[in-house]
Design a protein around this nucleic acid. Structure first.
Lengths: 238, 238
DNA sequence: GCAAAAGTGTTGACTATACACCCATGC
DNA sequence: GCATGGGTGTATAGTCAACACTTTTGC
């Protein structure tokens, strides 16, 4: 272990962000269009270099603010996924990228971001072949979020400060691509202490018609015991 | 995004390994004693630089082979934990470390490793204050492994090729620090298709006395549906 | 025989699932 | 009224935790 700073081929350290949101019953990812080679014209995950005085988490939150144009991203859920370090993943040089998943409620109109690239919300299934290994990162983010919905209270991160149980259920259904039984979902959520808290007296019409739904806020709980398991695609033994 | 290789303060990229094993009903971690400052004389997790032509996974497996002295580490479970990138985590320079958890069956006598530092198996609870942020990494590894035992077949990675259900149960009990009901544990494991496969006719005496136990091999399954939840420390609602 | 460890059986409590049903609102 | 979405009740099947019991070995 020698520590001459310049003895080794330098590594660039970047962050890549899989920013996800749920709108109108569909899952969207925030993508930027690349202006230059390699992969010019292809879509990619937003991201950038980690500055010398930043942790990867700090860099990720800075990039998130730049790309979404939101002034306050401190309340948003940001989670480290894993680090992608295959030697050939960027043809220009050795780039090690720490990937993050970020979850937003109502998606803002994306600004161009600092690097003036066009940013856009793209439906998850239509996020064609992305640049670099970003297809894999995006898929890993989806899988991770889907799994965490089962045993954490993460779903509220996709919801505005006040939301209905129907909206919360829609988050689960959209991320999992499955339909859930409304009465049972309701009971599960309300039976978990600290998952959601009722907003007294408040109600909101959702689809224009129908009974106004009661409003809830995210509660203090983080874990979900017992878990809310996603239904098996086919007949699972359980 | 500019790509001049030497424009930025260089980042060193390293891997740190939390190598865990279960022996005699206790959890052990593989540690190395540091010879030089900083943290001279303190214990630390094994690790080292990622070479220019390596991915972090490749580097981790190489370090694992060096530190354990095992000639074949290809079958061992190695899992990326997360990346630690706080600017001040190494006082000498900017070091970004990709941490891994590795799981071993019967622990080999550790060799000195490539860097001639003394390596030793230390009981998990007695792994005093470690160098750098390695306490945190080790704790994160423990937490991750404990969680993965619940919903994956990971426990077999702690077991030799052929093992008894009692030994498998001991893995769970040791990592979780809890006692499990033997009949129920047995049923759970055998009811999960592909978790373990019976070795026909084989049996082994375990504690010198008692009925010889049937032997099993790890099965092809990776996930555990339904999960084997660890008991709550105190009275959990469930 | 006795202790120790493996393996089997049973029971009662709890949970989940799949429904049927009622309520409030807009048109 | 009727369609739409929110909210409640319930019966059944399934699962789990606890514990009693049997089997096979060493001493």
């Amino acid at each position: 272990m020698d520590y001459d700073k310049y003895a080794h081929e330098p590594f660039a350290v970047t962050v890549d962000l899989a920013v996800l949101t749920v709108a109108e019953g569909a899952l969207y990812a925030l993508l930027v269009e690349r202006g230059q080679e390699p992969y010019a014209g292809r879509w990619a995950l937003p991201g950038g270099f980690v500055h010398p005085d930043e942790s990867a988490e700090t860099a990720a939150r800075r990039e998130l603010a730049e790309e979404t144009g939101l002034s306050d991203v401190s309340g948003l859920h940001l989670e480290q996924l894993r680090t992608y370090s295959e030697p050939g993943r960027d043809p220009r040089m050795r780039v090690v990228s720490v990937a993050f998943a970020a979850l937003l409620p109502d998606p803002p109109e994306p600004h161009g971001g600092s690097d003036a690239a066009e940013a856009r919300w793209v439906p998850y299934d239509k996020a064609g072949p992305l640049a670099f290994d970003h297809d894999r990162i995006l898929a890993d983010a989806h899988e991770r979020v889907g799994a965490k919905l089962e045993y954490t209270c993460l779903a509220t991160a996709f919801c505005p400060p006040e939301f209905t149980l129907g909206e919360l259920q829609q988050v689960y259904e959209t991320v999992w691509g499955a339909t859930l039984d409304r009465p049972n979902f309701r009971r599960k959520v309300l039976a978990t202490p600290g998952f959601v808290e009722a907003v007294p007296g408040a109600a909101r019409l959702t689809g224009g018609r129908g009974k106004p739904a009661a409003l809830y806020r995210a509660g203090p709980a983080a874990a979900l015991h017992p878990p809310l398991l996603r239904p098996s695609p086919e007949g699972r033994p359980a």
